[in-house]
């Protein structure tokens, strides 16, 4: 049985890690971009950011003060037993968010959308937010994503329905145009990890885009060749636009493009994009019934990517 104490501790440490320690694939993306960036301003922005990130990891200081929306993505083993029931995943997560906020590992950023009331602990209606998958086994695997306001509020999230008559051309145009608009003056903190969701209802496409941006490793490829080709084409195309780090002009405009899709209605194709900040934060932990806690470098949310 997974005890509340073990689960709570594992979640708290995962929040702290996500907020302060940049994942390895993102650090590699920085290093790779620095080595091929020809604009001195963009290169300087990438180098200074990487230095700050390395220091954040050593000193357990926030990688970015905007720790954004607290989002949990949980893989629940179909034989997992949690002390007090599965709902403890949520109560323990909320307690961990509150503790992390009080200890400075999350900024108290969440507030009431209309009154502006600030609970001071990032806990409120529908926040933190939880997404679940059932998987074989007896473990709980949880990924915490502090999703920054820059990438989420300033045009990094878009959605449009295309006619089948317009097809892939419309999809590509939409993503390129939307990314240019959202990157202006560094609004979404480019070079982003760009997620694209194709098909499904509006919420399915936006959810896929979010998960593709926040949960897939930089450098991962969609296993279906046709989808991988779209990823590659968008990645190459966007990197020829000259947007650069923080929109200051340069060679590296996007760290990666990850595309996921869902079957859709024969009437139209929903297309959504979601950008993750170049400081793409996430951390994953897996807890089993014997009390073992295992950290994972990647959420591996999409079955192998």
């Amino acid at each position: 049985m997974i005890t509340q104490q073990v689960l709570g501790k594992a979640i708290f440490e995962t929040i702290k890690k996500a907020s302060c320690c940049i994942p390895g694939d993102i650090e590699e993306a920085f290093q790779d971009s620095i080595s091929r960036e020809s604009s001195s301003v963009s290169k300087m922005a990438l180098e200074a950011t990487l230095e700050s990130l390395q220091r954040s990891r050593e000193t357990s200081l926030l990688a970015c003060p905007d720790t954004g929306w607290p989002l949990f993505f949980v893989e629940v083993g179909d034989e997992a037993v949690v002390e007090g029931g599965l709902r403890v995943i949520e109560t323990a997560s909320k307690r961990a968010v509150e503790k992390a906020t009080h200890e400075g590992y999350l900024r108290a950023t969440m507030k009431h959308p209309l009154t502006g009331e600030d609970p001071g602990n990032n806990i409120g209606n529908n926040v933190p937010n939880f997404t679940y998958k059932f998987v074989p086994g007896d473990t709980i695997k949880l990924t915490f994503v502090p999703k920054g306001g820059g990438s989420e509020c300033f045009g990094g999230t878009r959605y449009q329905v295309m006619a089948f008559a317009d097809g892939l051309t419309a999809i590509k145009k939409f993503i390129v145009d939307a990314y240019i608009a959202a990157s202006r003056a560094g609004a979404i903190c480019p070079p982003s990890v760009l997620g694209v969701g194709i098909g499904g209802t509006s919420d399915i496409s936006t959810k896929l885009a979010k998960e593709a941006a926040a949960l897939r490793k930089v450098g991962s490829k969609n296993p279906e060749p046709e989808i991988a080709r779209i990823e590659e084409e968008l990645y190459e195309g966007i990197n020829r636009l000259g947007i650069g780090a923080m929109g200051s002009g340069g060679d590296v405009s996007v760290f990666d493009v990850n595309v996921e899709y869902a079957y859709t209605h024969l009437a139209g194709i929903a297309v959504a994009m979601n950008a993750n900040c170049f400081i793409a934060r996430r951390a994953t932990v897996e807890v089993d019934g014997k009390g073992n806690i295992k950290e994972h470098e990647s959420p591996n949310w999409f079955n192998g990517r």
Binding site: M162, T169, K172, L241, G242
Partner: peptide, 26 residues
Amino acid sequence: HLDEKIAANRRSVYQEMGIPEDFEYT
């Protein structure tokens, strides 16, 4: 100033990706 440069780059990116300059969504 950067907007102008990016708009110019977009024209060639469109071309490489097979997106017509005058494409309009249905």
